[in-house]
Design a protein around this nucleic acid. Sequence first.
DNA 1: CTGGATCCGAGACGATACTG
DNA 2: CAGTATCGTCTCGGATCCAG
Lengths: 137, 137
Amino acid sequence: MDTYSGTDATAPLTYRSDCPSRTVIEVIANKWALYVLAALRRYERPLRFNELRRVLDGITQKMLTQTLRALERDGLVSRTVYPTVPPRVEYGLTSLGVQVGQLTAAIADWSLEHTREILAARIAFDERAATEPAPVR
Amino acid sequence: MDTYSGTDATAPLTYRSDCPSRTVIEVIANKWALYVLAALRRYERPLRFNELRRVLDGITQKMLTQTLRALERDGLVSRTVYPTVPPRVEYGLTSLGVQVGQLTAAIADWSLEHTREILAARIAFDERAATEPAPVR
DNA sequence: CTGGATCCGAGACGATACTG
DNA sequence: CAGTATCGTCTCGGATCCAG
């Protein structure tokens, strides 16, 4: 977008759009990636494709493939093919993946623990929006 | 953890699509929400709308509004209007927001620290894909 | 300054069919 | 079993204009 080469000393902490770490974050910042990492971490062992599919209720095989590819590309997930018949493919966490898995699992756990509070906040918010005739927005 | 009506004893750990925590995760699992939480946490003080916009390089005001609304609705971000002229609106973290902020900031920090490794993994992956004539996929 | 409203294109995503 | 391919839908997200 814009490149301020030291133009503004008042903006010491910007999250630049060209920072490469953003591309990393954008891989993690999607629910299926979070679920895949969380699942692989929970089971503490490699899982097969259809195993993962059953575990991650609601995911389509397309999204699972896509997500696994992205995670594999970033070196977070390893893919091992056993040339048997029928074919057997296992997905496991790399050492990088284990690290991220701890972080993402923490988020998943937190979400689970605080679901009630957040659901309550939502209801309150929605009621406020509904009852306020002319909200000061 | 969650309750499945005992249909399948071989699937003890599924991530059910109807689990309410998923809706929570889906709010967090988008890059702008992660950035907003990270920014509010870093600055350790409420930020105004356009402050946030400048900090989060590349975000449009639409997405910023949308993201802030979602976070506010979930009780992670508080919105305070000072009826001055021109209007002044500040966004801060709630206690819930501070908690999530720690988790998401950890991810952001990790991404920043491991950007090199991941970029390298990507290059390796892409080259493998390019050189392998008939990949065993 | 802080948004809301609208239009629109690109990409996400789901469903289905097919293959080694 | 573990995918790939194709198609249609639909939401996300950017750009622009407008308002209190």
